[in-house]
Design a protein around this nucleic acid. Structure first.
Length: 654
RNA sequence: GCUCGGGUAGCUCAGUGGUAGAGCACUUCAUUGGUAAUGAAGGGGUAGGGAGUCCGAUUCUCCUCCUGAGCACCA
């Protein structure tokens, strides 16, 4: 009779390891090397992350996950959230626990504490206690919940209604419970959780609680509001500090902060939230963007229209907005007539289309407008330039035949690519397909979705599919860019629309003299000028490339005696359409240079006796120590070239 | 819209139940400087708005507006 007391484990390098049956990941790590055993925190078992204490099975393919590797962070963070929960419950006995997942850079845990609101000062205390708890080197033990019904009852008795609810939901999934166990084998705290977790709390050292906020239980507005404690945790202090430094850098780039120091835009309590006042500096950036946009669109065969800001309510009945967008629309009562402030431009462009009969020979019609729209966004959603109530879309609608729309989409893609690459923005695409609530039959959706896919694949573009996330009126391609803080912003979008052509009974006459319905494509490239200005401000950290920079040159006299010369030179630059300013304050030159640099002015011209005599200028680029001498004419020529080419780089070099 | 913070000078912020302070910015004067903060003097706020409590409120309470983090929302 043969008994198998050995199992064989496959390792990533292809080798195998023989172990006693019943061995776990810790045993495996020890058998390989003591050093590995020290760093081992979890296992990758046949591609799934499991606890280190997982009992190995014969023929398992195991990779040992060690502290510091990519997959280890989620485990570290998740386990830390449980310690947070344990500590909070100890400190506030009435605290009921919700959920506590790992997030991108940290973790949170949701609590309901009827008799206490956690303050920032509390966080300092709680953080200390987390560290203290972690240093107690508690072992984490996973146990299956054998009698689920009585465990639920136990939770309910303790008032842990949220845990009871979760366990109730998972009662048929072999639910598990995690325990913190001390050196004497005593269980000090437990939580219903799937894991995986660290083998021991001793790994947790570099932890910092960041803030507390509100959140609905299970993200549902009608549910209880929980107190959500956020934190971040890393394998060591150095990593933590690097993370905090990154965060600080991101905060420095925050467009709302730069708006104040660089005088970009403002909002006013007197005017209302989410209504943007563009100051001259950011307005200059905007105008440059608009000019660029118009040039490219003109070349791409677009025609520009201008439409009103309000229209009678009946228009929005026809478009359907009164049904499905009413909450977001501002309305005006004038005499007995209701007017709506437009939340979108599309119905207006449709009206222009419908103002005359169209032949297939007219198509495609590409109708573009920088259209300012107003939407009553929820007060809590309003945020800087990112989410506002009044904004200008770089909108366009393409009306074309079914044979043309794939080519039209390719055309839009090329425009997007050209504009984004000029701005130095990388983007990714998502194709969103038919949602559950949708109009139009399957046939037309199929037609539209395959067309979008075909367009993208013929362009050789990579894209992800986002099933069921299309608009109710048609599928769409969203273009997303990443900003300095790592946030993903949706800017450009291309959407097919089966709804409006129907509702407005749009038509054209085909070559066979039949009446056909045109395909309608909505598209925006910047999305909104507000949002793209935010992304660019943060992307460049305020240091706009020369063509976009509000002030392109700062002229700095060395002493008052050079003021006249400097003023004349400024006027000469302005005559050449270079945005030049002078700094004639009675400050030291050093101070003025520093000031111009902080304001991110690309070029500084320092002018003293030497320059006045030689007719040359001393050119300095922001952030660079380099100084270059050249004649005024040469400088103008190089500037104009840099501006015209919309270069991202300085002719001097950084 | 919801939860929790916050709103004091142009900006960043301190402080106090008895009508308010710093740094930067601004103005003036002196300095006339060669590539990252010259020195001195001065002006400026009635405390987001409203109501209440109090002998008295910027400070306490309530309402409202704006704002931050998070949630919800986002064609």
């Amino acid at each position: 009779m043969t008994t198998t007391t050995k199992i064989s484990i496959k390792l990533p390098d292809g080798s195998s390891k023989e172990l006693d049956k019943g061995s776990n990941g810790e045993d495996l790590a020890k058998s390989i090397s003591p050093g590995l055993a020290k760093k081992a925190i979890a296992l990758d078992v046949n591609g799934q992350v499991k606890d280190l204490f997982y009992e190995l099975q014969d023929a398992d393919e195991i990779k040992i996950i060690t502290a510091g590797e990519r997959k280890s962070y989620e485990i570290l963070r998740h386990t830390t959230s449980h310690i947070l929960a344990a500590v909070v419950q100890k400190k506030y006995p009435n605290a009921k626990v919700g959920v506590g997942p790992a997030t991108e850079n940290g973790f949170f845990y949701d609590f309901r504490i009827e008799d206490h609101k956690i303050t920032d000062d509390d966080l300092i205390e709680i953080e200390k206690e987390i560290k203290k708890f972690a240093s107690g080197a508690y072992k984490l033990v996973k146990e299956e919940v054998k009698d689920v019904a009585s465990k639920i009852a136990e939770y309910k008795k303790a008032g842990e209604v949220y845990k009871a609810e979760l366990l109730e939901e998972h009662k048929d999934d072999n639910p598990t419970e995690y325990y913190f166990v001390d050196n004497n084998g005593v269980k000090v705290w437990s939580d219903h959780c799937l894991g995986p977790h660290l083998p021991n709390t001793k790994f947790i050292k570099a932890v910092k609680l960041t803030n507390v906020s509100g959140a609905y239980w299970r993200a549902k507005e009608t549910n209880d509001v929980m107190q959500r404690v956020h934190g971040t945790v890393w394998w060591d202090e150095q990593e933590l500090e690097q993370y905090l430094a990154r965060k600080e850098e991101a905060e420095k780039r925050d467009h709302r902060k730069l708006a104040k120091t660089m005088d970009l835009f403002s909002t006013h309590e007197l005017a209302g939230a989410g209504l943007i006042f563009w100051h001259a500096k950011l307005a200059t950036v905007r105008q440059e963007l608009e000019t660029f946009w118009k040039q490219l669109h003109r070349k791409a065969g677009y025609e520009f229209v201008v439409t009103p800001h309000i229209a009678k309510s009946e228009l929005w009945d026809t478009s359907g907005h009164n049904n499905f967008y009413k909450d977001n629309m501002y309305s005006l009562q004038v005499d007995d007539q209701e007017y709506i402030l437009k939340p979108m431009n599309c119905p207006f462009h449709v009206l222009i289309y419908k103002d005359s009969r169209h032949s297939y020979r007219d198509l495609p019609i590409r109708m573009a407008e920088m259209g300012t729209v107003y939407r009553n966004e929820a007060s809590g959603a309003v945020h800087g330039l990112a989410r506002v109530r009044g904004f200008t879309q770089d909108d366009a609608h393409i009306f074309c035949t079914r044979d043309q729309y794939v080519d039209e989409i390719k055309g839009v893609y090329r425009l997007i690519e050209e504009i984004y690459s000029t701005l130095g923005l990388e983007f990714q695409m998502e194709l969103s397909t038919k949602p559950e609530q949708a109009i139009g039959d399957d046939e037309i959706w199929e037609f539209a979705e395959t067309g979008l896919k075909r367009a993208l694949s013929e362009l050789g573009a990579n894209f992800e599919i986002n099933p069921g996330d299309g608009a109710f009126y048609g599928p769409k391609i969203d273009f997303k860019v990443k900003d300095a803080i790592g946030r993903i912003w949706q800017l450009a979008t291309i959407q097919l629309d089966f709804n409006l052509p129907n509702r407005f009974e749009m038509e054209y006459t085909s070559a066979d003299n039949t009446t056909e319905q045109p395909v309608m494509i909505h598209r925006a490239i910047f999305g909104s000028l507000e949002r793209v200005s935010m992304v660019l401000t943060e992307h460049f950290a305020g240091a706009f490339p020369t063509w976009l920079a509000p002030d392109q040159v700062m002229l700095i006299p060395i002493s008052d005696s050079h003021n006249d010369f400097v003023t004349k030179l400024k006027n000469k630059l302005i005559q050449n359409e270079i945005r030049a300013k002078t700094d004639l304050r009675s400050e030291r030159m050093n101070y003025k240079i520093r000031d111009a640099q902080e304001k991110q002015v690309p070029y500084m011209l320092v002018i003293g006796d030497k320059e006045v005599e030689s007719g040359k200028v001393n050119v300095r680029f922001r952030r660079s120590q380099k100084q270059v001498e050249m004649t005024v004419e040469e400088f103008i020529e190089k500037m104009l070239e840099e501006i015209k080419s919309r270069s991202l780089n300085s002719f001097i070099g950084d």
